[in-house]
Nucleic acid binder design. Structure first.
Lengths: 209, 209
DNA sequence: ACTATTGCCTGACAATGTCAGGAACTACGA
DNA sequence: TCGTAGTTCCTGACATTGTCAGGCAATAGT
């Protein structure tokens, strides 16, 4: 099982099987909680024996690695700017709020994916260089609108903390609701008042208690 | 192994052994990552066979439960008001900032404990009624200073999200440093400006960019 | 057609959580 | 003090789990 082949047909077939295995792994993780599945269960779901999976992935952790890469690609797709994104100050600010809501939705719509991407749930799993590079790309794309506002360093740290906090609390404490989702706009405006006070007048409509 | 005995000496001995097992479990979890230890390893560390541990805990998850309870008792101890806490408005505000710093320190000083208390890392583990009650108590004690300021509902949600976010980002991204710890005071004042604007004049010394 | 590669299988092994039964020791009551 | 009950650990064992080795049937390449 070298994994290298010159045949397009076989290569395609192999890629398909790999994708099937990864998709089945997502299903099992979502059903059982992250990490709570056996290779035998996975094999059964795909229609082969567990041992056969080892001709596609060298270890269980390599399946997590493929999932990690998969999840970050999905994040890139979610956070990629869409074609209608304007460039003047007012649109930028609305873009930030929309970006926050998009990230929140991405994370809370799939808690297992969130765990794998942003927490350290699997003790022995660390991403490969390749998939870590994808994660870095996802990070850069996610923060690009903030950087375009001139935010950097500790300012970005504060924003990522607030965003991560809203998501984390939502997933931990109200997984089937939207309790912390209702706070996104307030949190966003609070952050922008703090970090970009000169730019926020048009967006802020009054937030006093 | 009924676990019920009339003998103080035996009862004490049993409690000591239980404590030893839990302490050894903390050590192993901290060394290997949460959940990444075997009962055999734990038995060896305590000086008995793995099977013998089952005369003290019915399952591995029951050990996690004891640890969960343990960790929340430590949180209660950390967040309990100290004797020098004043009651007027100015002291209250400084109390909030100190509370934030204390919570941050509690979490980041022991990431495995943080994971067990605040994340869902062990798929099949849910706290027992008894230890969940301790966790509720810890929550109430932690939030009491905020409630004394008149904060409630979604205001508390925003604060807990920011706090959780700072901790979570710190532990995930800078486990051996203090990158997000440096943002605590700014985050605190930002929150108080947002939520208690009438009360914060004496504390805020100017935070514009 | 023949050979090499691929894709799965069976068989097996060490590690893991946990159960059952029992021996040695300790505590309690007569 | 002695006998009995309870406690604390042990050995032995089992089902499950991650993963390796070897091999056969089907497919691909020449």
């Amino acid at each position: 099982m070298s994994g290298t082949t010159n045949s397009t047909r076989i290569s395609l077939r192999r890629q398909e099987t790999i994708s099937e295995i990864v998709a089945a792994a997502w299903d099992l993780n979502r059903a059982n909680g992250l990490g709570n599945f056996s290779m035998r269960e996975l094999g059964t779901k795909v229609g082969m024996r567990a041992q056969s999976i080892y001709s596609y992935f060298r270890s269980k952790n390599e399946i997590f690695d493929a999932m990690f890469c998969d999840g970050n690609l999905a994040l890139i797709e979610t956070m990629q700017p869409s074609s209608g994104d304007g460039s003047d100050s007012e649109d930028q600010l609305e873009l930030i709020a929309a970006m926050m809501r998009r990230f929140f939705q991405f994370c809370t719509s799939d808690p297992v994916r969130y765990q794998l991407l942003f927490q350290r749930t699997i003790p022995d799993f660390t991403p490969s260089e390749e998939s870590f590079a994808v994660a870095q790309q996802a990070y850069d794309i996610s923060l690009a609108p903030l950087r375009r506002l001139g935010l950097e360093g500790s300012e970005l740290d504060l924003i990522t903390a607030v965003m991560a906090g809203l998501v984390g609390q939502q997933i931990s404490n109200d997984p089937h609701g939207n309790r912390w989702g209702l706070l996104i706009d307030q949190a966003t405006s609070m952050l922008l008042k703090e970090l970009v006070p000169d730019h926020i007048a048009p967006l802020i409509k009054g937030n006093s208690k």
